[in-house]
Design a protein around this nucleic acid. Sequence first.
DNA 1: TATCCGAGTGTTTGCGCTAACAGATTTCAT
DNA 2: ATGAAATCTGTTAGCGCAAACACTCGGATA
Lengths: 346, 346
Amino acid sequence: MTQHAPGPDPTNRPKAAVMEDVAERAGVSAMTVSRVLNTPDKVRPDTRARVLDAVRALGYRPNFAARSLVTGRSGALGVVSFDTTLYGPASTLHGIEQAARADDYLITIVSVGALNRRSIGEAVNRLRFQSVDGVIIVAPHESAADGLRHLPPDLPVVVVGARDNLPVPVASVDQATGAVRATRHLLSLGHDTVWHVSGPQDWIDARARIEGWRSVLQSEGRQIPEPLLGDWSARSGFEHGKLLARDPEVTAIFAANDHMATGVLRALREAGRRVPQDVSVVGFDDVPEAPYLWPPLSTVRQNFTEVGRLSFQLLLDRIDGRTSPAHHLIEPELVVRESTSARPPR
Amino acid sequence: MTQHAPGPDPTNRPKAAVMEDVAERAGVSAMTVSRVLNTPDKVRPDTRARVLDAVRALGYRPNFAARSLVTGRSGALGVVSFDTTLYGPASTLHGIEQAARADDYLITIVSVGALNRRSIGEAVNRLRFQSVDGVIIVAPHESAADGLRHLPPDLPVVVVGARDNLPVPVASVDQATGAVRATRHLLSLGHDTVWHVSGPQDWIDARARIEGWRSVLQSEGRQIPEPLLGDWSARSGFEHGKLLARDPEVTAIFAANDHMATGVLRALREAGRRVPQDVSVVGFDDVPEAPYLWPPLSTVRQNFTEVGRLSFQLLLDRIDGRTSPAHHLIEPELVVRESTSARPPR
DNA sequence: TATCCGAGTGTTTGCGCTAACAGATTTCAT
DNA sequence: ATGAAATCTGTTAGCGCAAACACTCGGATA
């Protein structure tokens, strides 16, 4: 190689300043620079000012990897979530992210296509590998239980929306209470009983909503129709809606989410049954478009932002070794709009 | 302190194994362990097997911070996105995550409440601080332009869904073409012209859809109604829909997204105008519930997964120093369902 | 047989930072 | 003024890993 002169760096990119450079420019030791950044009040104000000037002048940013190598903390949290395009998980994720940002944590996300022991284990491993300080698992699925019971014991974990009896803190919306409110609302309007288009049986939330709905009918001594198993999609709501529309006995339907409720509304309409004059419908979630369906949908609102905030807080507590009670519930809220009204005269 | 005996580690957590421990157990040097992990074929098979056994036996996981300190790479990518609860951004994020996972990258997300120079700068800084290898910015907003022009030059960046003339690669769905297809479809059904309920002016996509829609009407010599400015919400679609429903001239409406289309459908219905017999409606996005609206919504499908995949690929190229052409477009697809039909007889 | 080669492995070094301790300087009471 | 405590700053060491180079050894080559 004919490398006669050293010449400028071929990448033309000056090597980023490191702590030593800042120290030199400020006329102090590297340690003092570190202190200015981490424990500013342990440095005399004028020294601090000199250092900060040097930091700015050099555009210095501390090297995250070096810091976390020595401190053992990364300032990053992992979130494992099932299909983040669904409204619920997406909103929860958003809530977590907001809360984390306020506390200067960063969120690393792994979304998994299935919730089983293997996929959860893999996801958690990927995150540990990146030295996250803790992990929030959004696992609204029955199949996750096994995976959640076999988490590495030395990793702070919080679970969102799972069943109880887990060795970790859990935060979730009180699904059963939501279902109870929806069902009570319909009964209070004079309906004899309430049909239920449920979510898939292997979803915790779906089960809890069934339980809530059933418990009200039972305690009120009403007929308990077999729940119709949907899959959360508008499509499945539509299919079940067609069946329900044929039965003149059906005057009140509780759908386990707003998408299925949307399908139910369509099926009723196609069958010539008016909502709410002939049939009342309640959904669950309160998706943004719920007020603008036809008719505006009565539903149960889940405060996902709050779930995110809470789970983040629980995780912080976990990381700092503070143990926290097992299962934290957030109250959902019934939102009455125009898809529900009094039972039609017989 | 009466600490008589050393006793067991109070945390009861055995210090995680490091490379040296593995080396010792396998009877090799630490360097060989490193090679087994990073360049397996440079190690003789039997040595490799011994090392891997030791890795398994000790449950060794390499320390990410140490590795990235010495390699200068983190294996993490940052994504800056506007409101991740919206269907588009959420799907794009999901697409990016899928693609990244396949290549063993992890995604760190910062969602911002506004897209301006300050918020973008802050978000990018937070990510750099965590030593991400590159950043994807989902910035479908006019206000982001300034921020995008002032990115740190030494950070690999790819932008999704922004306008052209940026100093970085851009990936987006060809919004204008989508709008052209929607508009052509309506004209081909015999409608005299097409009304447009648009997204907010400061969204790039909204503008592009207006341009596409307008260009078709113009080239066909049709009357060009003033676009009605919405805000993406079903609510705004409903409000504008009420106005449009009153005007008997209106027989074809192109809404800039499916949520607004949902609102328009409701408004038309309330005003007693039938869809599609009296008025045809086309949306944009093809959200999952679109086929189950009443009537099933004709719309323009954006392949967000593909956008995510493409932007990830572009970013990898950027990181490896391969430059890539400026603006990459993905074709959207018109999906005709039942909300569109021939113009009613005069 | 002497030499070279290259695959496989080991040794040294340093990435950039902070914990822990040591030393210097100031502050305050006596 | 004089020591002791309190405050501030510097020094040393090492976090865990991989780059760079050095070495070893068997076999191919001349």
